[in-house]
């Protein structure tokens, strides 16, 4: 059974030692650059030039490439086929039977795949190198609501338990003769005796968990403190501000270009 849905891979590296906020800002900058900078190959350049070296530095390239590949490939295939062949009008470059491959469609598929690649890989890089509790800790410090932070991190940690409970209920009901395989109707009918115990037992758990969290003064008004000292190099705050300025400039540039194009 998985202990956590967190993707975090423990390593000793420069990237792991970065403050979560710095990594989060960099992820944001990568996304903004990938989505708003012009150029067909921009995202691929960013991927090869920034994301890959950073994951290599963190020792997580294998995990990153493996997961990114699984997510991006199906998108890429369908984009190339659908956009490539079904692009309205456009310049045909290859004929396959009654269909023709359009260069504009291909270009669109390349750009879209690049964007998906950037979104997936930058988030993967972030999640593989950042402990979720450290992220929430750092966000809470800058004013992120702690209730929301609790829900996010606890879900990642506790969800596997719900999964294993669902498996237990499934086994228990099967042991009593519940048919869970066969026609669609059989399967649909089996759902009720599986879902009801799962939901009810989860509700009971939620109540007890709420009490237990309350017993630890979770809803106390006033500032919280943190046991873990998060790493933060002296240059990191400045770097974050610099990245924020870059993001804003890229967005500004984009808006400026759109306005000038619209005027002309």
């Amino acid at each position: 059974m998985a202990q956590s849905y967190s993707l975090f891979v423990a390593r000793e590296s420069f990237v792991h030692r970065l403050n979560p906020l710095t990594k989060l800002t960099l992820t944001g900058l990568l996304l903004v650059s990938g989505l708003f900078l012009p150029g067909i190959w921009t995202n691929y350049l960013l991927f090869v030039g920034i994301v890959l070296p950073l994951s290599a530095a963190a020792g997580v390239t294998k995990q990153l490439v493996r997961s990114a590949w699984k997510i991006v490939l199906p998108f890429a295939i369908s984009l190339f086929l659908i956009q490539g062949f079904l692009w309205p009008g456009g310049t045909p470059i290859l004929y396959v039977g009654p269909l023709s491959l359009k260069s504009e469609g291909l270009q669109f598929a390349v750009v879209s795949t690049g964007r998906i690649l950037m979104i997936v890989s930058s988030f993967l890089w972030f999640s593989l190198t950042t402990r979720p509790d450290h992220l929430m800790n750092s966000l809470s410090r800058i004013g992120f609501p702690s209730n929301l932070a609790y829900v996010i991190v606890a879900t990642i940690q506790i969800a596997p338990r719900f999964q294993s409970r669902a498996a237990t209920i499934l086994d228990a009901q099967r042991a009593r003769g519940l048919e869970t395989e066969g026609s669609l109707r059989t399967r649909a009918r089996a759902l009720v005796p599986l879902v009801i115990p799962l939901v009810l037992s989860s509700l009971i758990d939620v109540e007890e968990r709420a009490l237990a969290v309350e017993a630890r003064a979770f809803n106390r008004q006033g500032p919280k403190t943190f046991l873990i000292e998060l790493p933060e190099a002296a240059w990191e705050p400045a770097a974050r501000w610099f990245m924020v300025v870059l993001m804003v400039s890229i967005l500004g540039l984009r808006v400026y270009l759109a306005i000038t194009r619209w005027r002309s």
């Binding site: 402990r131 509790d133 929430m136 932070a149 609790y150 991190v153 606890a154 940690q157 506790i158 338990r161 758990d205 007890e208 968990r209 237990a212 969290v213 017993a215 630890r216 003064a217 979770f218 106390r220 006033g222 500032p223 919280k224 403190t225 943190f226 046991l227 873990i228």
Partner: peptide, 24 residues
């Protein structure tokens, strides 16, 4: 199981959960 906060990665930090809430 329901009493473990689920947001901490070590027992030491888990024990700290209540103390952090108290702002110590």
């Amino acid at each position: 199981f329901n009493q473990i906060s689920g947001t901490k990665f070590t027992v030491r930090e888990e024990i700290a959960f209540g103390l952090e809430n108290l702002g110590l």
